[in-house]
């Protein structure tokens, strides 16, 4: 059961939510992309409901709301530390079905991978999710094959239908927002088909490292890490210590998002590093997304949003890479050496 809202009523709804929550949504930053006069769509706190971009996929994912690109953990002096304040209060985030599935991935790593992450949890505890329904798939999406096309666990789903909005509320606390609105018996749409199809071979195993399918990426990839930074499920970070004074006796420790594609990701103190070749980094990322994570948590990490394809300056397609795995396994065989 849902409600049909006019555009005005929808904006009223967002405004009412804004009274109680900080509302985050994909927003257009005019001229904010790499090239001259090209816009970028990324997440920001919404000041006006009209800013919310509903008809395009955001270039950067919602994850920045839960995992800021740069997050201060604590401040220190010589012998004392002081935890950083939470950067925001109660929040609502507009996201898509694939990203709703990515929330589960972030939760498993940050809450269920042996330790609970204090900083993630305090932001996670104060967030509600509104899914922007995708009646049609975007060009690079492959959510259907990754099983993430139907949203799960959200508080609300909205679907723009011409001048109107179908709104399905799944959070009982929000029912008050809909008093007086007529109910309709309509379920929100979801993408039932993608142009891009992927197949992860059942026999995939770490032997794939020996395949020649990775070699092309040694020269094609430039190890810039864009694929990781836009990915809603990439969660790696690096610690930074920032000095406030020359003598280094006061400062702050931050964590910033990190990329397994970028140089230095594996550097150890003695000067050693792993995966020097970019093809090896592609393989590492690929295996995490469609194999390693599944071995650990029971389902695939990649949610098929296709942002990595959209952003790659070298036109490397992750989904095309997935579809090479089968050939790769034929080449190397399943037996571990």
């Amino acid at each position: 059961m849902g409600y049909t809202l006019s555009k005005e009523q929808f904006e009223t709804l967002v405004n009412r939510l804004s009274e109680q929550y900080q509302v985050f949504a994909p927003v257009k930053f005019v001229g904010g992309n790499t090239f001259t006069d090209v816009d970028v769509i990324r997440y920001d706190q919404v000041k006006n409901p009209e800013e919310i971009v509903l008809d395009q996929k955001s270039d950067y994912s919602f994850k920045e709301v839960l995992l800021p690109l740069s997050e201060t953990l604590f401040y220190y002096t010589e012998e004392q530390t002081k935890e950083a304040d939470i950067p925001r209060g109660e929040a609502v985030v507009f996201l898509r079905s694939c990203e709703m599935h990515a929330v589960k991935v972030l939760d498993d790593i940050y809450l269920n991978n042996k330790f609970e992450d204090y900083y993630y949890k305090r932001l996670r505890d104060k967030i509600k999710f509104i899914v922007i329904a995708c009646p049609e798939s975007f060009d690079s999406c492959f959510c259907v094959d990754m099983g993430t096309n139907k949203p799960e666990g959200q508080d609300m789903i909205i679907e723009q239908q011409g001048d109107q909005f179908l709104v399905v509320n799944e959070n009982p606390q929000w029912e008050a927002y809909f008093e007086g609105y007529a109910k309709v018996d309509q379920a929100p749409s979801y993408a039932k088909e993608n142009k891009v199809k992927v197949h992860i071979p059942e026999n995939l195993n770490p032997n794939i490292a020996k395949s020649s399918i990775w070699e092309e990426y040694d020269t094609r990839c430039i190890a810039c890490g864009r694929c990781n930074f836009v990915c809603p499920t990439c969660t790696c970070f690096t610690m930074q210590d920032i000095l406030y004074s020359d003598n280094g006796k006061a400062g702050e420790r931050r964590r910033v998002q990190a990329s397994c594609m970028v140089d230095g990701f594996t550097d150890v103190a003695g000067g050693g590093s792993y995966r020097k070749k970019f093809g090896e980094r592609m393989r590492f990322k690929m295996m995490h997304k469609v194999y390693d994570f599944r071995k650990r948590f029971g389902y695939n990490m990649c949610v098929g949003c296709g942002r990595c394809d959209d952003v790659c300056p070298e036109y490397i397609s992750f989904s095309a890479n997935i579809n090479k795995l089968e050939e790769g396994m034929k080449e190397v065989g399943e037996e571990h050496a």
């Binding site: 330790f115 992450d117 969660t235 970070f237 964590r255 390693d292």
Partner: peptide, 24 residues
């Protein structure tokens, strides 16, 4: 194994090898 470890608690991802986190 020796790997880069920023967090020690299975979050930062630097030490991951295959499905395993060296730190945990």
């Amino acid at each position: 194994q020796e790997r880069k470890m920023c967090c020690g608690i299975g979050k930062c991802g630097h030490c991951k090898i295959g499905e395993s986190y060296v730190c945990i």
